[in-house]
Computed example of a mutant assay.
Amino acid sequence: MILRAFDPWKSELCTCPAKLSLNPYTGCPHGCLYCYASSYIPRFHSCRPKVDLLRRLDREAAKVVPGLFIAISNSSDPYPPIEKELGLTRGCLRILKERNFRVQIVTKSDLVTRDIDLLAAMKAAVAVTVTTLDDSLSLRLEPGAPSPKRRLFALNELSRAGIPLSARIDPIIPGINDCGIEDLVYSLHSAGVRHITSSTYKARPDSIKKITAAFPEEGAALKALFSRGGRYSGSSYLPADLRRSILEDVASHAHQTGITFSTCREGFAFEEGISCDGSHLLPL
């Protein structure tokens, strides 16, 4: 199946609305140290296209129950560098536009601006993940991803085209990227973002190992914090009081700018009637 019901590990903490997930590629070249998908997708950092993707999508899309929207993508970024040549994500958008699907793009790549013509002509919204404004820190955390400056540029371009925008400050890792949140929120607001989804870092064995190798002191401190937290759906959580404090700070800055705010798999909500993933921005 190319189109799958979104059901992340059957987590009791997931509050996502019903939706379908579409990943044009398997694996992702961004190399994010905190990535959860690398814990269960083999050779995750080796990006490869789905076989016979467009034909299969066209066939499956014809059978989808009306009403569900499609998220592209929930594990592998839909705009890896090879998308420039292969155009699979663009091909997916063409098919979904023809069938009048509502589509939410989730990406770290400024390549999404190439598809502004399609996105502006369909029922679409875009969520861009920006974890820091510090290009040098981003290069250490997300070595294969476009820089924060390029992502902010993409948000500005998408905003000028009238495409509804959300941003993901996700994850926030204590001691690593939890500083500068106020400036980040205001930069996102200036770029046209209307909603922010944020979460704290949930550790899995492979990701905490990579973070500790890159940030030895911070990694050791994180391990001590995780020893006081809990485990949900295979991930280690920070203590609840720390998570709430971090996210309350983000929420406060978001609300000061008029941006709506939600959390992802945290177990507490900050606003009623707001989707956790920003999909409430999708045109009807």
Score class of each variant (00 low, 15 high):
232 Y>P: 02
210 K>R: 14
229 G>M: 07
225 L>Q: 10
207 S>P: 07
206 D>H: 10
222 L>P: 05
220 A>T: 13
190 S>D: 14
207 S>A: 05
223 K>H: 12
190 S>K: 14
206 D>I: 12
236 S>M: 15
190 S>R: 15
213 A>I: 11
203 A>V: 00
221 A>M: 11
196 I>P: 04
201 Y>S: 02
236 S>G: 10
213 A>D: 15
215 F>A: 04
229 G>D: 06
233 S>W: 09
202 K>L: 02
215 F>E: 05
230 G>L: 12
199 S>C: 04
219 G>P: 04
206 D>L: 11
218 E>N: 10
236 S>L: 12
198 S>R: 01
232 Y>R: 12
220 A>E: 15
217 E>M: 13
209 K>N: 10
227 S>P: 10
214 A>P: 09
195 H>C: 04
226 F>E: 07
214 A>K: 13
201 Y>E: 00
190 S>C: 09
204 R>S: 07
197 T>M: 06
195 H>F: 03
200 T>A: 02
198 S>A: 07
207 S>G: 02
197 T>N: 08
201 Y>D: 01
207 S>R: 06
200 T>M: 02
220 A>W: 15
205 P>R: 03
228 R>L: 09
234 G>Q: 07
195 H>V: 03
208 I>N: 10
219 G>A: 03
209 K>L: 12
211 I>L: 10
223 K>D: 07
197 T>D: 01
225 L>W: 13
228 R>K: 12
234 G>M: 03
219 G>H: 03
230 G>R: 12
232 Y>M: 09
225 L>R: 09
237 Y>G: 01
206 D>T: 07
203 A>E: 04
213 A>R: 14
224 A>P: 12
220 A>G: 14
218 E>M: 08
196 I>G: 03
237 Y>L: 02
193 V>Q: 05
205 P>T: 02
228 R>I: 03
200 T>H: 01
206 D>W: 10
236 S>A: 13
223 K>G: 06
203 A>I: 01
204 R>P: 08
236 S>T: 07
236 S>Y: 11
216 P>N: 06
229 G>Y: 01
211 I>F: 01
223 K>P: 05
195 H>M: 03
194 R>E: 13
203 A>L: 05
210 K>D: 07
195 H>N: 04
213 A>T: 11
207 S>F: 08
214 A>F: 09
199 S>D: 04
202 K>C: 06
225 L>I: 02
217 E>P: 06
221 A>D: 15
193 V>D: 09
220 A>C: 11
222 L>N: 05
219 G>S: 06
212 T>N: 06
204 R>K: 13
214 A>S: 12
200 T>L: 00
197 T>L: 03
203 A>K: 00
209 K>G: 05
214 A>R: 14
196 I>V: 04
216 P>M: 04
213 A>E: 15
217 E>K: 13
192 G>Y: 06
221 A>E: 14
190 S>M: 13
222 L>Q: 07
206 D>Y: 11
192 G>S: 10
193 V>N: 09
195 H>L: 01
228 R>E: 08
191 A>E: 11
231 R>N: 13
215 F>P: 08
207 S>M: 01
221 A>T: 15
230 G>D: 14
208 I>F: 12
196 I>T: 03
214 A>G: 10
233 S>D: 10
194 R>V: 05
233 S>K: 12
195 H>I: 00
222 L>M: 05
196 I>K: 00
213 A>G: 10
236 S>N: 11
224 A>V: 12
231 R>K: 14
